[in-house]
Design a protein around this nucleic acid. Sequence first.
DNA 1: TCCATATTTCGAGTATTCTCGAATTATGGA
DNA 2: TCCATAATTCGAGAATACTCGAAATATGGA
Lengths: 118, 118
Amino acid sequence: MEKQNALNALAALGQETRLDVFRLLVKAGQEGLPAGAISDALDVRPNTLSTHLGALSRSGLVHAERDGRSIHYRADLETMQALVTYLLQDCCGGNPDLCAPIASLAAASCGQGGSADC
Amino acid sequence: MEKQNALNALAALGQETRLDVFRLLVKAGQEGLPAGAISDALDVRPNTLSTHLGALSRSGLVHAERDGRSIHYRADLETMQALVTYLLQDCCGGNPDLCAPIASLAAASCGQGGSADC
DNA sequence: TCCATATTTCGAGTATTCTCGAATTATGGA
DNA sequence: TCCATAATTCGAGAATACTCGAAATATGGA
């Protein structure tokens, strides 16, 4: 991931409504949610939400797909993954010895679902 | 990590100068760097830098410590760790099956130093 | 075709952020 | 004490971001 992409993604997530939207979409899974459902769930006006969805979309964190009259948004976890990797590279590049605890914590946060293969 | 802390950290990193500062401090390691050295390295005026260092400091991503006439700033990797964990929790909570590739990529980014125990 | 629904785009108002020069505070040394 | 250095705080200007109501676009169904 390029620095500018990381910057866009971080700036996108550094705003409450957009972080809420992104987390909601992550929970919603692969199918995502139509804009209207997001608007209802978070109590944000449709036009304001549309602006935020545009920012998330430009940053690559979400993707839009029209489905009939509505437009489904879904979180792009690969971009999320790339962002985390970018942040960890920053960390581990200069301090490999400090990376282990971060990686193990990341793995631990995975285990919350109880899945052994995580 | 609380949502508001994550929000502050993300917003802090979502600005070019501050991301540059943070990365520079990560590379600088435990001792950190005095404000003047950061100012010189990144070609940012001292007062402007001070504002950004204040934002990073309030977000918990860096810490300041006076050393004689200068003030040393160092990156707080624990906050970084907590942020990554927070982001991964968002991810893994609803989709445990999607966490494994993210965790393994994180581990892979660790391995760049060649350290086997990472 | 005509209408209702879903979403976006437009334009404007307010708020926040970024940057800067000038002034201020804090420290160490002569 | 007096001065030089290091960094911060203050105040203001310009740019950017956020939110909203109103209008426009796109789709599906009667």
